[in-house]
Design a protein around this nucleic acid. Structure first.
Lengths: 258, 258
DNA sequence: CGAGTAATTGAGTAAGGTCAATTCTTGTGG
DNA sequence: CCACAAGAATTGACCTTACTCAATTACTCG
């Protein structure tokens, strides 16, 4: 008996890094959920707000924002279907960053109560939740490296790669392309650039025959070229080898070798 | 009966955000520790390495690094006495970032075993450990905002403020100054700048009469001016109000009001 | 007293931002 | 189905910030 598809996706992610028994799997599947529809551009968790539910993304695209007093925004994480966008709020209910729907989105709210109860009953789930937050932080520090130390082109290329891998993991990488409905302004907020410069970098990638975005869909024409542009080293990423192999396999026909 | 001073400092930090009973306090104090001396510039946790101990900083300065394949480094966190630099390794033992002593440093190694045992025995400690990692991640996302969206001067000013607050919390802010033995190269690795530009920004702060670094010691002459340069908004930081009040009180005589 | 590291400064360059105009999409109402 | 409005993408010209390169000066530790 399966739970909501998004719960299954999340579960699949947890299982990648944690040994879970049948009772633990069932406990996750039995978590109570409240589906909610969120319109594009709406904040559904505001800065400083205290929540008693975490948000599992079922469909759409969610950004986690840090914001300066002058309104400058930095997206510190993108969340797609199967991501628990703020599992951390179960540990720290006062939001240190906002969550915004970047497109029309469906989220499943999971009460913190329920999360804590399952964590108490199943220590391995407590560990899994903690670990999930740590992996999230590791991704963020990888992104800090991009923001602090890599040029614009590499940041954009890196983002396209990361999203390819993540969409692959939820079965939404189709051949060499995936749907990615972010605007260039939003890409700028992710990569610490202006939308104008994002546009120029995308054009550079397109002109080089590496990758392009057309009608909200990313198409990768040269996977190895994209990895080179990003100076992407999978070894340093928090991605299981099996997943990397899968993506590389999927992409093998779209690599131009020297 | 008190534990090692660094353990007491860490405990004080945990208590700031968690209600802990006497048994829980004692469990932390009873954690086994192995003091280790680490020379400046030595990595004591390497990238990709799997560890079975976490590192509590007892004295000195520690940097957490992300590193690109070409050698570019980004420091994603600075750790001072009383910080558990890689509590997260208890949840994810394979290091996603390296730890390096930035000066001669003393660390206390705490076996993961022991951490897990206390977490199992005291659910509130499990929660506290999880929460500590989440706070750490929140600090990192604040820093990502600096890297992605703020100019060089603000980043440096922000760093000086953050360190002032953190040294205040461990009783090492003396009047308007604190010892901070980082080189300008290291400050560059924190702030995503070159050491040359760090130097220029420090000169700008000095020339403006706001703050200066002399012989590894930061002196803040104009706290409100420094906060302005950083466009620092304490509301958005993961700092308890009581701590902020304390710092502002300490600094009140070093603010130049318009 | 060196030697090596760190800090400081200047001159020139390059990456990315700003501003502004134009074109393309997309959704809406008639 | 079309006209239109609003948002998004695209491009050019110019400017600012921060980087690079290089030389000089200060520290610190044997």
């Amino acid at each position: 008996m399966n739970a909501h598809p998004a719960v299954e996706l999340w579960l699949r992610r947890l299982v990648l890094r944690n040994e879970l028994g049948p009772g633990e799997l069932q406990a996750i599947r039995d978590l109570p959920i409240e589906p909610t529809r969120v319109a594009a551009n709406r904040d559904f968790v505001r800065l400083g707000e205290t929540t008693n539910r975490s948000c599992l993304v079922a469909d759409g695209l969610v950004g986690r924002f840090s914001q300066a007093a002058d309104g400058a925004r930095q997206i510190t994480a993108l969340h797609i279907a199967g991501d628990m966008a703020d599992l951390h709020s179960a540990a720290l209910p006062t939001a240190a960053s906002a969550l915004q729907a970047l497109t029309d989105t469906i989220i499943l709210r999971v009460p913190h109560d329920a999360i804590h109860r399952t964590a108490q009953e199943f220590p391995r789930l407590a560990q899994a939740f903690w670990r999930d937050c740590v992996v999230d932080a590791a991704n963020l520090s990888e992104w800090a490296l991009n923001l602090g130390r890599r040029p614009a082109l590499a940041r954009i290329a890196h983002l396209l790669i990361e999203m390819a891998i993540r969409y692959f993991m939820i079965g939404r990488l189709h051949g060499n392309s995936y749907r990615f409905p972010a605007t260039q302004i939003q890409l700028g907020d992710v990569s610490g650039l202006t939308s104008v410069h994002v546009n120029r970098m995308l054009r550079a990638l397109r002109d080089a025959g590496v990758a392009s975005i057309q009608s909200q869909s990313v198409r990768i024409n040269d996977w190895s070229g994209l990895c080179a542009a990003a100076s992407y080293d999978p070894q340093y990423m928090q991605v299981p080898q099996s997943v990397l192999d899968g993506v590389n396999d999927e992409m093998s026909q779209y690599s131009i070798r020297q």
